[in-house]
């Protein structure tokens, strides 16, 4: 086992026998992590489902408060970032170090645009007194239901944004190491695994956008 045929990569950790074992272990670990993330968001989606069923009118009225243009724009931004991320993974696997670096930077930039737009949206909600637990006011007969929608809107998009912020921080780390040329075709899996995370966060948004912005909107 220790007499592994391949030359010892400096990235091989002592308790693994080969880079292949290390790569497959990390990959499985990342999928397990994604599985638990799915259950984590699942709790919020369940709450959404229950209240959407209980309060269909309030949820439509609440949905109408959201800015569909900004939401749509952000969806496009995230999809584009998933593209650049996929390109980064390809570049890491094929050893194109320059492309890798620039694709990671592009992903970072798109992530920043997304968070910036989210900031604009949240500010508008604060301005319009739509933040439950902070300044929510409404004279609609469905005020309570709209408030529940807004509470879920903030909980769900907030949790998503938090994941974006974490991804943002990780990206800085990977960009730093990509700039130093650490990732090679033999050692590309950190980028692949980060790609999994990034795509997962993206997919969560792909569900959030129709549920929050589109459903019930004539």
């Amino acid at each position: 086992m220790s007499a592994s045929a391949e030359a010892h990569s400096p990235e091989l950790q002592h308790h693994f026998d080969s880079m292949e074992q290390q790569r497959s272990a990390s990959t499985l670990g990342m999928w397990a992590f994604v599985a638990q993330e799915l259950m984590f968001f699942g709790g919020l989606f369940t709450a959404y489902l229950v209240y959407r069923y209980l309060y269909p009118i309030g949820f439509e009225l609440g949905s109408a408060q959201l800015d569909i243009k900004l939401g749509g724009f952000n969806t496009a931004v995230l999809l584009a970032s998933s593209f650049t991320m996929a390109m980064a993974v390809w570049a890491a696997q094929t050893g194109k170090k320059k492309v890798l670096l620039w694709m990671l930077i592009a992903t970072l930039a798109l992530g920043a645009v997304f968070l910036g737009v989210k900031y604009v949206e949240y500010s508008a909600k604060i301005e319009h007194h739509l933040v439950p637990g902070y300044n929510f006011e409404s004279d609609s007969p469905y005020a309570g239901q709209i408030k529940m929608f807004m509470a879920l809107y903030f909980a769900m998009t907030g949790m998503h944004a938090l994941h974006m912020v974490v991804g943002f921080g990780l990206l800085l780390f990977y960009i730093y190491h990509a700039a130093k040329g650490r990732y090679t075709p033999e050692y590309s899996h950190p980028i692949e695994l980060f790609g999994l995370y990034w795509h997962f966060v993206d997919i969560v948004w792909i569900f959030l956008f129709p549920l929050l912005y589109l459903l019930g909107r004539a």
Binding site: A32, A35, E37, F40, G43, L44, A47, G133, A151, A155
Partner: peptide, 17 residues
């Protein structure tokens, strides 16, 4: 643990809010 604990986590987040 992997499939159940995150549900508690998000429930506690909602409780904290």
């Amino acid at each position: 643990i992997m499939l159940a604990t995150p549900v508690l986590a998000i429930t506690l987040v909602m409780l904290m809010l």
